[in-house]
Design a protein around this nucleic acid. Sequence first.
DNA 1: CTGAAAGCGCTTACAG
DNA 2: CTGAAAGCGCTTACAG
Lengths: 332, 332
Amino acid sequence: MMARPLSSSPQKPRPTIQDVAKEAGVSTGTVSRVLNNRAGVKAQTRARVQAAIIHLNYQPDLAARELSFRQPTRIGLSIAAGSRRLTPFFTLFLEYLMGELQAEGFRFEEVQSDSQGLPTELTDGMVLFGAHDDDPRIHYLQEHNIPFVLVGHGEGIRWVVPDDYDGGRQAVEHLLRLGHRDIVHLSGLMNNQAFQDRYQGHLAALNNAGIKPHPELLLDGDFSSLGGYRAVRKALEDGLNFSAVFAASDEMAIGAIAALEDLGLRVPLDISVVGFDDLPEIGETLTTIRQDIEQITAVAVDLLKEGLSGKPIRHETVPVQLIVRGTTAKRR
Amino acid sequence: MMARPLSSSPQKPRPTIQDVAKEAGVSTGTVSRVLNNRAGVKAQTRARVQAAIIHLNYQPDLAARELSFRQPTRIGLSIAAGSRRLTPFFTLFLEYLMGELQAEGFRFEEVQSDSQGLPTELTDGMVLFGAHDDDPRIHYLQEHNIPFVLVGHGEGIRWVVPDDYDGGRQAVEHLLRLGHRDIVHLSGLMNNQAFQDRYQGHLAALNNAGIKPHPELLLDGDFSSLGGYRAVRKALEDGLNFSAVFAASDEMAIGAIAALEDLGLRVPLDISVVGFDDLPEIGETLTTIRQDIEQITAVAVDLLKEGLSGKPIRHETVPVQLIVRGTTAKRR
DNA sequence: CTGAAAGCGCTTACAG
DNA sequence: CTGAAAGCGCTTACAG
């Protein structure tokens, strides 16, 4: 049996702020100031401290930090009313977000929305998930002077989005390059910015290629594998003519593929399918658009920190990437 | 706009261990001993302290606690190799578990399994998820002397399970009472204790009623809504004769219902369907078997704490409950 | 069985 | 610009 590090074995103690101070020849207060980006440290001193931090591979003790901060900063994740919570994407998003927040020493909590769509609780800062048109949370938070970041996009607020529009465009351009012309767009009916943007990207790609969109090719896949299956199966049975499917989520793509195969069509030989998300366990065999969820949450936390310290408002778009795997091929 | 408590408004400071000590007329050390269930506190003193804790609604500061503990106790959640992680049930389980663990001051991490099914890392204590036959993790952890609790059941180890067997029995007895005799069992093929137990419960109910199980009625729903849909749809198209479905998860039940409806059958008028889990967002309209996930995780953490402090090994079964809603009715 | 005190690793007024 | 020191809320030897 391979020897593994056991927790009972003597762990070498982690370096503390004391060790860093000694190494850099300064006081712990100064190290703390550098750590927290406080103004008023001579550039030269700052550099010495930073070198020591790197040299010792110092990582602040979160518990000590939180205890010293007296009042821990509470960050709430506000989930839009009616938005689904138990989805693979949300699960992943939540895990990354909690990781980032914890690493920064924040206290995290989920806050639900009431019947009017407003958060039922206010925290020191908020992350808004499930952006949609006329989101009432934005005005509400502005009014209450709570710094927040929207996972989505809006006017004059802090936001971060994966480039849904570009992802939609890339997916469809890929299919266009393979010779496909009649491309189903499989999505859902919910008022949801991300899915709207993906569809707009789809339309833009068609438009650039001089192809008229066909309204019948827009299918309601209910954002789920089951919904994707039923929508595609019904379309097929109704005689809809298409050679490719762009599913706006990996789950719907999985459903689409199952429906095609159940009706004797081969993927990608007869029909090509592109997904969106590149989720582990789900989209691993799909040609799909990869979203960098970890990066999205990291940016969200950065923006939130800027909001908390009163920095100017800005926003960021996280690129997405086409991953070509085995579910797309040249049109026959 | 309704006034809400703002984080910027002056919060009344939380009571500390000092406040409790003063109120109870003891030292903070004594309060700490009571808090941590240390031996050697007079019963009377303990009672006074507990009264003060309740009276002040005292809740220990986690950060201070962790800092004082020097070495935080790390608890790992070991997920069986090949077990699905991005499912609604697992998401819920994980969230409750993390909550419990945090409340107890533990440091939590997920640990994956390697190709041989062994955890890739050892922590001070472990929770084993995804129990199956011949689980190699059990022997491995025993050998390394790591206290652990299995979410499942085994011989001579600490474990907690929802009463899967009884849930299966209750579901089928409910259908039997409604006059159903030909009951599909919709499950999956994976080597998974929970699903095996649910099926055994199903068989027991049949047996008690003197009904012979029919092997054709055991369907592979792949543990998913899509799998449930396809299995049931195919069975129907193949002319399988049944008047009820017991799906071993709410997701498969949802799929089954969709398939039935797509083929013109009405639920519960023509066919009754029972699910399992009672998941929010998913099983809310189903007649189903409710699992108390919060309770399961709470017991798991209790057992783990007992293991950490060398208490005798024991196990616990958490009851499940039949929830009758609108998807079951008398056989026509 | 219980208390007084030191200490965990940080941050932050307060001096200088 | 920087240091010395107090303090955050706990736990735990050490006395008694």
